[in-house]
Simulated assay, not measured.
Amino acid sequence: MSDASLPEGLHMRPATLADVEQAVCVMNSSEIEYCGEPETTENLLRRTWSQAARKPEENARVIVTPEDEIVASVDTRNKRHIKIDVELDVLPAYRGQVELPLMRWVEERAQAHIALAPEDAQVLLGSWAYQHDTQRQQLWKDLGFELVRYFWTMKRELTQAPEQPQLAPGIRLRTFKELQKEAPQGEERLARALFAAHEEAFSDHWGYIPNIYEEWRQYHLGKEADLSLFFLAMDGEEIVAYARCADEGQQGGWVYTLGVRRAWRRQGQALALLHHAFGEFYQRGTRTIRLGVDAQSLTGATRLYECAGMQVERRSAKFEKVLRPGRNMRTLSLNQA
């Protein structure tokens, strides 16, 4: 793409792993403005861009000054070529000047995904904005996106040791790391069982699109993942629920994924996992715990998190744009699951 539409002196180029530090600074600028503190870490972005399916040279662009200082970035992630999620970040001094060229690149990049999507499938772009970021929300509307959903970030501050987990009869809590050490020859079987549990648990979440096992494993169970914070609720040898957590240092502890298989719901599995995770973070000296949730969760997750003592810290709006009409292949209601 030509740089003619960019302010004088700025240039667009592919992102690389060497850009992680600068790219995170750009992302943090909006997080500090709207959240009061940075949220994205270098470790998180490096782990993301290290995935084979997320190569920044192919899926991300940065806008730089003549000194190669990054002032804006856009990153894309596709789910089976039918949904392309967009993360757009711009330093405050450059807002309103560089977004349109970046989004033109995104739509050009999306054409490759449209060609690979099932012939009858609807293909979408998706992105988001903080609730109070009216400038970004207006940008999405001007580009033809529609507001489709709200999401919350919820938080709990641990001022004292949290509640002890109350496990259902016959359920034991283990970590992936423990099971991995006990039976290293069975690690692949364990990983596939966990993947199957995840796909079942999330198949009735709004917007669900089936994952690809190899991509899922590389990100969730790769060498940089702390598998001692990947908690599994076991009924004998069967995984019935799990919580994937991470200690993000100054950003606190995160419960990135919490899932319960259908047959084991309404038995306190999720609450027990949350309390167990809180306890582990507390023992490690981490006092702030966060997670993200669909504000209109089909499975009632918001009520669970409120019962666990979590409160809404901030709200964001989800936007989507249809690039190609067709059959919507995502979960939109429990009747589809």
Score class of each variant (00 low, 15 high):
R54W: 03
S29I: 13
E69F: 11
E87K: 00
Q137T: 09
Q135V: 13
Q164N: 13
H132A: 15
R95V: 05
Q164K: 15
T65M: 12
Q160D: 12
D68N: 14
H81R: 09
V26C: 09
A110S: 15
N59M: 08
M154T: 10
V64E: 02
I70M: 06
W152F: 14
F151D: 13
Y94Q: 04
A115W: 02
K155H: 11
Q135H: 09
Q97N: 13
R149V: 04
L158R: 02
D142P: 05
R77H: 14
G170K: 09
W49Y: 04
T40H: 02
V123H: 02
E31S: 15
R95L: 06
V90Q: 02
V86C: 01
S30R: 08
Y34G: 01
I63M: 05
I32F: 03
P118Q: 08
I32P: 06
N43S: 12
F151C: 10
N78Q: 14
G170D: 10
R156M: 06
M103D: 05
Q135F: 11
Q51G: 12
R156F: 04
R46N: 03
V71F: 04
P66V: 12
G126N: 11
E157G: 10
I63G: 00
E146Q: 13
A117Y: 05
A53P: 00
Q51M: 11
R149M: 11
E119L: 12
E119T: 15
Q138Y: 08
I82V: 14
P101E: 07
H132Q: 15
R95Y: 03
S127D: 13
Q166A: 14
Q164F: 10
V86M: 00
S73W: 03
E39F: 06
A115P: 04
E58T: 12
P169C: 04
E33R: 07
W128A: 06
P118Y: 08
I63W: 00
E67L: 09
M27N: 09
E33P: 00
G96F: 03
D75E: 15
N28H: 13
T134E: 12
Q164P: 06
D85W: 08
N28C: 15
K83F: 01
S50A: 02
L116E: 14
P38A: 06
E57G: 08
Q166W: 13
A117R: 02
K83T: 06
L44Y: 09
L88I: 03
S30A: 15
E31P: 09
E69T: 15
L44K: 07
E57T: 12
E157Y: 12
I82K: 00
L88A: 01
R47I: 00
L147S: 14
P56A: 06
Q51P: 03
V148M: 10
Y150D: 12
Y94M: 05
S29T: 14
L158Q: 04
E37V: 02
P92R: 11
E69N: 14
A60Y: 08
K79F: 11
Q135M: 10
I32G: 07
Q111T: 07
E31G: 11
A93F: 05
E146Y: 11
M27G: 04
W49E: 00
W128C: 05
H81S: 07
L143E: 11
A121D: 10
L139G: 02
R136A: 13
P56M: 09
V148S: 10
V98L: 04
L91G: 02
G126R: 12
A93D: 13
V24Y: 07
P118C: 07
I84N: 00
L124R: 08
A60Q: 05
T153F: 11
A52F: 02
R95N: 03
P101G: 08
P66C: 10
H113I: 09
